[in-house]
Design a protein around this nucleic acid. Structure first.
Lengths: 211, 211
DNA sequence: ACAAGAATTGAACCCTAGTTCACTTCTTAG
DNA sequence: CTAAGAAGTGAACTAGGGTTCAATTCTTGT
């Protein structure tokens, strides 16, 4: 029985899978889920459309994995920022700065993560993402309560509300930026740094951290 | 030239349009945008699919109007609640209670308003909705600052962030309820009243209202 | 070199849901 | 009553994109 899968082939297969995934991530970062058709992904990865289905049973699985990959990056960045700071006030400020900074540098991607309509499978992942994000913030709140820096509070509720607060405060400017990016126009965008500063004040006050 | 549009016909036409719109609203309330196909709307309104296009140039226009109709109700309810209270602390509590109460009583509708993927036209309306909601909250904050009850703050940022905070804190329980509603199963749902109480504390603290 | 079988291809297929349109049914003015 | 023309109908059309599959190209063990 000739031809048994050899490590060499195995490696090429997983490299291929990786290229497809990367291509999909790149397309979402540039054009959002709207531009992420199977045909476009295949073209960018340098394979035939049919080949995509050798690695992913359906498009929903592909985009779900795309979402997971990209959202993990964001959650990790935020979690790292939290770990670096000592006080809750500094940590929550770092969360806002990290997340807002990254989002505004890659607005199309941020929009895709936060709000863009997509496959129901992505919706599920989005809930996971928000929960993970909330957990990272929860860590900081719990720590603050333990040290007495923060008043006692429902960590789950505060964390979930903060995720919403930060996300929503960003959607406005984000939508503007995403729009101009789509039109590939370099346009003046409403200043964000002052908004970020105000948002930091808001979130610090909201968890009871004296600014 | 026989047949000129008479008031009688005019009335029947607008009644027809109204029936179509109501049917669409009802379907969204029950099954979300997912179930809101033109054929389904027409069937429920008791007209042919083609007739829908006598009143709306395209489906996007219909669903946009559905969204506008339903979101106005919510914003009005919240604005009314704000107007009834005198202190900012009471007013923001009333906002949370009103919105959360209504949302949890009609979870499928709330999900459609807040988060359900839908036509791009709906996305645009959703931004309008959030802004209107934020404006209602902004009124209360501005008033609180003026009376000295609240510390000075960026009203826009605080209001937008609060919209996000309230919305996001609701999405979790909402998704659960919407799911069980879809399956038409009466199931135990995570208690929400205690969550609402905690959320009220959170939002009061976040605008600097002493609880 | 050869054959067994897997990987790859990309054009054809299919399915869904919005939209159209030729035809029928009403409504109105003379 | 009759004709002009609008409103209403629903089956057929269409578009877009996910999915499939017969044919082709590779890879491997003897």
């Amino acid at each position: 029985m000739p031809y048994r899968r050899t490590p060499r082939v195995e490696a090429r297969l997983s490299a291929s899978r990786e290229r497809i995934l990367s291509a999909a991530v790149a397309i979402v970062a540039e054009h959002g889920y709207a531009g992420c058709s199977v045909a476009a992904v295949a073209r960018r990865a340098g394979v035939a459309t049919g080949s995509v289905y050798r690695h992913f049973p359906a498009k929903a699985d592909l985009v779900a994995e795309v979402f997971r990959t990209t959202s993990r990056r964001e959650v990790d960045a935020v979690a790292r920022a939290v770990a670096l700071e000592s006080t809750a006030a500094e940590a929550i400020a770092a969360v806002v700065e990290t997340f807002a900074g990254r989002a505004l540098r890659a607005p199309r991607m941020a929009y895709a993560l936060l709000a863009e309509p997509a496959d129901p499978a992505v919706d599920g992942e989005r809930l996971v993402f928000r929960r993970a994000f909330a957990d990272a913030i929860g860590v900081l709140i719990t720590r603050g309560i333990a040290t007495g820096e923060l008043p006692d509070q429902d960590v789950q509720v505060s964390a979930a509300a903060l995720v919403g607060a930060i996300g929503d405060a960003l959607i406005g400017p984000l939508a503007a930026r995403a729009a101009v990016t789509d039109a590939s126009v370099t346009a003046p965008v409403p200043d964000v740094s002052s908004g970020t500063a105000h948002l930091i004040t808001f979130v610090q006050r909201s968890i009871g951290a004296v600014s």
